[in-house]
Write a protein that binds this DNA or RNA. Structure first.
Lengths: 259, 259
DNA sequence: TACGCTGTATTACAATATAATACAAAGTGT
DNA sequence: ACACTTTGTATTATATTGTAATACAGCGTA
């Protein structure tokens, strides 16, 4: 019985658009260039459907087509969408000046993240030391339980909620040192709850120390986080906590969204 | 006679997808939150069409809907697309480490732009002083003739091409000081051609000096530009040319795409 | 209280996307 | 150089799907 979904997917739901978006989404970090048959595999569409949708997106300027290899890849229109988004993100606009200041003060890598389901997504990135490319690109998603930003956001929620999330939310192992022990993660979050910032090491990248602090609404709901990445070659956790943490916390607290 | 367009928009072109993308694109810098009737106005779609497409995009997670105001706005999915794009942009990946270095060396705002039609688009942004929000958001498009990056990219093309573009391409007046005199722009570009970098003042933002240098492929085709923004309160053009220009040029030249 | 405006819901109809298929072109391995 | 597989392109008859029209509801305005 195809119910639940099908019911609301009636006349108000345009399935053609869904398929088109499926093709748009087929391109990602590890799938940056796809041929028609790749699109078929990734999306699960029929060959002829994939053909029509890819073709349409190409004509609309969303996909570039290499005439030789006949493979598609995202066009710069993908980036323009980010620009549109950012103007609709009140928090990003509010935070930007503070992030710039913090970046200058610390001379270190500063990021701002927002929660999205069980992940966090990086909305602003200001790299200050060489790192993995993914770590300096906007729009990256990382499981909240792995990222210091995710953890510090959680730390501001009721303890029962924290325990639920730590129990149920997904974890991806990014480095050999990524913590998969949920008890340890819970401890780290509860520690963050006390200290007002979250300290992690080598969770997403092998050689980084991260310090994150939550941005909260007037009511105290966590709605984002600032985090600072330090190369662990040159920093100890002690120095990080002494020198960087207060600045990150201060910056985060200075951002108080009024809506 | 509806020809040209209609001809190729045959069975390979899915018009429903086009309409959907029209709704996606309806949101922008100055249109960050739209109600259904706004969407109708912006896209030119029928009311019921706008309804169905907006609804579909909402269900797919691209548009958020404020339950009270019933207005839509872009979701964070717009940002995720940027991430997908960046991984497909070889130049961005290649340039990133050099941009980070340059940002540290100069302690100033560094950007990377790529040409797109008659515009340039900012692909990487590393703000180092407080500025207009739009100036620190990725994905912004600016007419090539106005931006120092656009001009320096042009400066590396054959002179006949330069003259054509300077004559025909659009200009947007961003500040009272934005040059609309095409002769002056041509001079500036030819100057850039000699010096190897382009210097502009107050073209896009009222209080900024910009210095840009082109990134070229092995064959010498300009494919992008690095540009440095300086607050004109604290910088003179002389100092900028003496201290900053050489670094920007060096960084740009050190980036040589092998494909 | 009546009126315009905006968003929601439903329907009968035909325009549009569809799947199948055939062909061409480019890789792949022997 | 060969047959063979894989991948992309083009075409068509069919019905599935999007369509426009319309009616209704909710909200703010006069």
């Amino acid at each position: 019985m195809p119910d639940g979904k099908k019911l609301r997917q009636d006349t108000l739901f345009v399935t053609s658009l869904e398929k088109g978006m499926l093709v748009l989404e087929a391109f990602s970090e590890d799938r940056s260039e796809l041929g028609l048959s790749d699109i078929v595999k990734v999306t699960g569409l029929e060959k002829s459907a994939a053909q029509r949708y890819a073709n349409t997106l190409h004509e609309l300027g969303y996909l570039e087509k290499n005439a030789e290899t006949r493979r598609f890849k995202p066009s710069v229109k993908y980036l323009e969408m980010a620009y549109s988004y950012l103007w609709s993100d009140y928090l990003a606009q509010l935070a930007m000046p503070r992030l710039i200041d913090l970046s200058r003060q610390t001379a270190q890598t500063i990021n701002m993240a927002e929660p999205i389901g069980t992940d966090i997504i990086y909305v602003v990135r200001m790299p200050n030391h060489r790192t993995n490319f993914g770590a300096s690109a906007v729009g990256r998603r990382v499981p909240a339980l792995v990222a210091s930003s995710g953890r510090v956001i959680l730390s501001r929620k009721p303890e029962t909620v924290i325990r639920e999330c730590v129990r149920d939310w997904p974890i991806t192992q990014y480095t050999p040192k990524t913590t998969t022990d949920r008890e340890a993660i819970l401890d780290n979050i509860l520690m963050a709850r006390e200290k007002g910032y979250c300290l992690t090491q080598k969770q997403v990248l092998p050689d980084e120390i991260n310090i994150a602090a939550a941005i909260c609404s007037i009511e105290g709901t966590p709605i984002g986080a600032i985090h600072c990445s330090l190369p662990s070659i040159r920093w100890t956790t002690e120095r990080a906590e002494a020198e960087i943490a207060p600045l990150v916390v201060e910056a985060a607290q200075s951002i108080v969204p009024s809506r």
